[in-house]
Simulated scan of single mutants.
Amino acid sequence: MVFALLLASFVVAGMLDGLLARLITLLFYVGVLVLALRFARLPIGTARWLRRALLAGSVLIAVLVLVLHGRVIEGIAALWTAGFLLLTVFVVVGRVLRHPVVTMQTIFGALSAYLMVGFVFVALFTAAARLGPGQFFTGDETADGDSIQYFAFVTLTTTGYGDLTPATAPGRSLAVLDALCGQIFLVTLVARLVSVFGVERRRPGDDAAA
Score class of each variant (00 low, 15 high):
104 M>N: 12
119 F>Y: 11
197 F>P: 05
151 F>Q: 00
81 T>Q: 12
207 D>T: 12
108 F>T: 05
22 R>N: 07
172 R>G: 08
157 T>D: 07
171 G>E: 02
117 V>Q: 03
187 V>W: 15
61 I>N: 00
22 R>S: 09
110 A>T: 13
21 A>E: 13
4 A>W: 10
120 V>S: 01
94 G>D: 03
107 I>Q: 04
80 W>S: 02
185 F>K: 10
56 A>I: 07
156 L>E: 05
129 A>K: 01
69 H>C: 03
146 D>H: 14
89 V>P: 02
59 V>I: 11
12 V>H: 01
84 F>D: 01
29 Y>V: 02
139 G>Y: 11
90 F>M: 15
116 M>H: 09
210 A>P: 06
96 V>I: 08
190 V>D: 03
208 A>I: 13
26 L>T: 15
51 R>N: 15
9 S>E: 08
34 V>L: 15
62 A>R: 00
168 T>V: 03
118 G>R: 03
196 V>T: 15
154 V>G: 09
182 G>F: 04
155 T>K: 09
70 G>L: 06
152 A>P: 04
180 L>G: 10
1 M>S: 15
90 F>I: 13
199 V>T: 14
112 S>G: 11
53 A>C: 09
79 L>M: 11
21 A>R: 08
146 D>E: 14
77 A>E: 01
5 L>R: 05
199 V>E: 14
103 T>I: 09
29 Y>I: 03
56 A>E: 10
10 F>M: 13
62 A>S: 14
121 F>C: 01
210 A>Y: 11
97 L>G: 09
32 V>Y: 01
6 L>F: 13
82 A>C: 06
149 Q>D: 06
38 R>V: 10
66 L>E: 04
8 A>G: 13
55 L>K: 04
187 V>G: 05
62 A>E: 00
25 T>I: 06
56 A>R: 09
132 G>S: 06
7 L>E: 05
83 G>E: 06
40 A>W: 01
44 I>G: 10
31 G>P: 03
88 T>K: 01
163 D>W: 11
163 D>C: 07
68 L>H: 11
192 R>F: 14
15 M>F: 12
173 S>N: 09
159 T>E: 08
43 P>N: 12
123 A>G: 08
209 A>V: 13
141 E>F: 14
185 F>T: 00
56 A>G: 09
135 Q>L: 13
43 P>S: 08
162 G>H: 05
67 V>S: 10
14 G>A: 07
119 F>R: 11
88 T>P: 00
150 Y>I: 11
81 T>I: 08
154 V>Q: 12
111 L>Q: 05
82 A>M: 04
200 E>Y: 15
200 E>I: 08
62 A>F: 01
109 G>R: 04
90 F>K: 14
166 P>L: 00
20 L>R: 08
190 V>E: 00
28 F>T: 00
119 F>H: 14
24 I>G: 01
